[in-house]
Design a protein around this nucleic acid. Sequence first.
DNA 1: AGGAACCTGAAACTTGAGTTTCAACCCCCG
DNA 2: CGGGGGTTGAAACTCAAGTTTCAGGTTCCT
Lengths: 309, 309
Amino acid sequence: MAGKKTRRSPPNGAAAARNGKQAAVPDSPHGASVESRIQASYGELPESERRIADLILEFPGEMAAYSATELAELSGGSKAAVTRLVQRIGFANYDEARRAARDAQSWGSPLYLMQRETKKSGFSARVREHIEQDLQNISFTLEGLRADAFNEMVAAICKARRVFLLGYRNSHYLAGYARWQIIQGRGDVYLLPAAGETIAEEIADFSAEDLLIVIGFRRRLPQVPQAMAAAAAAGTRILYITDRAAKPSPHATWTIPCGVRGMDFFDRYAAAMSLLHFLCVAVMEKLGAGGRGRLQHIEKLHEDLHDFD
Amino acid sequence: MAGKKTRRSPPNGAAAARNGKQAAVPDSPHGASVESRIQASYGELPESERRIADLILEFPGEMAAYSATELAELSGGSKAAVTRLVQRIGFANYDEARRAARDAQSWGSPLYLMQRETKKSGFSARVREHIEQDLQNISFTLEGLRADAFNEMVAAICKARRVFLLGYRNSHYLAGYARWQIIQGRGDVYLLPAAGETIAEEIADFSAEDLLIVIGFRRRLPQVPQAMAAAAAAGTRILYITDRAAKPSPHATWTIPCGVRGMDFFDRYAAAMSLLHFLCVAVMEKLGAGGRGRLQHIEKLHEDLHDFD
DNA sequence: AGGAACCTGAAACTTGAGTTTCAACCCCCG
DNA sequence: CGGGGGTTGAAACTCAAGTTTCAGGTTCCT
């Protein structure tokens, strides 16, 4: 029609002053994360944009791995809605938001990637950065647990006739630590491989009543998938604790992906340690009076053997 | 020129039969991960593609958050090389590889995304409490470090003729882990006690040129202070990593108190793991080119020995 | 009731990401 | 030495991802 009004441009941060009901959005796209910007505007998002926002909020940091088109499809909305959402919360376009989401993970920042060797920030800044990286890994790892699956794992550890912990290299020390916790509350807990041994001799006796806990972080030996296949063939259930980038194993009954990443030479295992602690405490609680009785019996033996100072 | 030959198309999996020296690459892009496909072809990659492959391998799973153009820039190569790499390893185009990389993380799979269940509030509150306790221990431990003393410890680890890690029970696994990190950058690093052995035989040879790192958390065996006294008598410097409640040792050159306490049956070792990581990374950096050279030599040996999947 | 503001996805449009081609270069072999 | 095979990045090209516009619809206010 001749009298048809010109449509306004999509809402964005610069247009906030025209709509008094808009939430305050920072002018600069630098600084606040995609997630926090969405949360700041969440109450004012229209339906189509809110569905997309929900998807992003559910998996913070994953957005960068998806194109706007993919997000639109997953949310049942349109590409236009995706563009509008990111412009509403202050980004110039989707690509800027995608990069911000990616770079909010400090180890993902291209600038950080290229300059990490030359960084000479102060010691305390370095400590803080280190703590932050561990916290992110811990949060990812623990918050990724689902209660029902977790309770199944705990129950399986308590009920198995025997529990084996398998791990090589770094994973071996974590497996040893986990075994040491579990054995405080129940017996028949074994660490593989024992020094100087091959594991086929143990796997030969695996059965559906046993449980295999595989600690399998990056740079796995070929023995790991092989052992898992053999255990599964014997009907043994498998709890697979691994890193985020690991290919899912068809043999694992349960899989827990741990955050191990950082900007260093070495992977980070604070999150794995934290997870194992959480798991073993839950096992101890699940064992109840039986576990406590065993703990007391062990204490008595320690006293008799004068084990501690 | 009139006689100029037609250029061949870029190498790809379908063209593998034309080049008998190509590594076998699966026909279907479904199945093997980007990482494992790169590793399968790694030896045959030309320089420009190998640089991009190195970037991808260094951060498996992160590839999906980057566009081909960004990877090209980061690696100092060209967009054409990125396309060639993914086609060489069997993907039709970059987008297919990007999606494979993303979906290889099962939690990144769009299907998985849409089926995620809402968390039980009781469980998630428990997870949050757990994370908070670990964060407090980690913060206390790492923020308690003084830069000058820390740098002395790092230097001592680098310079010692031999480095011994001593730990019993839980501490033993942490000591083993730490040894495993340090040995990546320098030799003559030993874990005590070895299974079935007593430690006097090693301590008998301790000298002022050696360093003893004692991981000694709560419920220490009498061997720990005894070993420290004997090492100090031999002039060996001692780095003592212990819990906050431990009595200071008159024999320790340096002491790092770790936060290990929580509300559970078991002590928490995420902070100790975090500290050891921080320490070992600093050692690795201090070792510089020597450490990197050793790491590369070890890598070469791993390849020769076909150690990893 | 009419108009303004807003929402929405499809359609039209823009643009640059990614792919293919090209030509220069290098290495190896007969 | 010449030719074949391979590498390489820039240039040319393709095409679809993302952005903007459009038109129909809803809600609210005067």
